[in-house]
Computed example of a mutant assay.
Amino acid sequence: MTTKIDDIRQDPVITRLLEKMPRRVADSFDDEQLAHLRNAIGAREWGRHSIDLRGTVKLAKWRYYYVILAGRNRRSLSDQQLKLARLLTASLIAGFTVIAILVGLVVLYLIKSALGINLIDGWSLGLWTWFDTTFL
């Protein structure tokens, strides 16, 4: 979330910051300084996430913490970050599609084999034999 310099004094983070200072000190900041302060402390605001899970895990003699945050992305991304996001999204969609097609083909092959249909006489992947001995 980017704050314009024109309305920086209306920003909730800046307003809370300035309220904690004496009036003469708060009035001494110009808009550019306040914008830089907003950028420096604005990243520490964690309160607006749909999912906010935090905890610790003890493994052997050490304790580790975890933080899982999820919510609507309000940041403005650079061109490089947008390209990377598009590439990652396309890769995930392609990967999911390939896995879904492979699972579908395996299911179809198992159904075909269960019905006793042979497409090529004398040839088999051996998948049905493994499935039959393992699960049935």
Rank of each mutant, 00 (worst) to 15 (best):
D27L: 08
S76F: 10
A60H: 11
I117S: 04
R24A: 14
G95C: 09
G104F: 13
G47N: 12
A94N: 07
W128L: 01
Q33V: 07
Y65N: 14
L77R: 06
D6W: 10
L88C: 02
L127V: 08
F135H: 06
L108D: 14
G126V: 03
L102K: 11
V67N: 11
A40E: 14
A43S: 12
V106N: 08
L53E: 15
I41A: 02
D7Q: 10
A100G: 07
L37A: 07
Q81K: 10
R74G: 11
I41V: 05
W128E: 06
I101D: 01
D6S: 13
W128F: 06
V67W: 04
R24P: 01
D11N: 12
S91N: 08
T134N: 03
V67G: 01
A70Y: 06
G47P: 02
R48M: 12
K83P: 00
L77Q: 09
I8R: 01
D132H: 15
Q10W: 00
S28C: 07
V98G: 00
S124W: 04
T97E: 04
A70V: 06
T3F: 06
D52Y: 00
Q10D: 10
G47M: 05
A43F: 10
R24F: 13
V107D: 06
L82R: 14
I41T: 06
K83F: 11
L92V: 13
A90L: 11
D7S: 07
V67Y: 03
I120V: 07
T2A: 11
L82D: 09
T133D: 09
G95W: 03
I111V: 13
V106L: 15
L18Q: 01
D7C: 04
R23G: 05
R9D: 02
K4A: 11
V25Q: 09
V98R: 05
L115D: 05
P22Y: 05
T134V: 05
R44D: 14
K112V: 08
D11I: 08
A94K: 10
L69Y: 07
L34V: 02
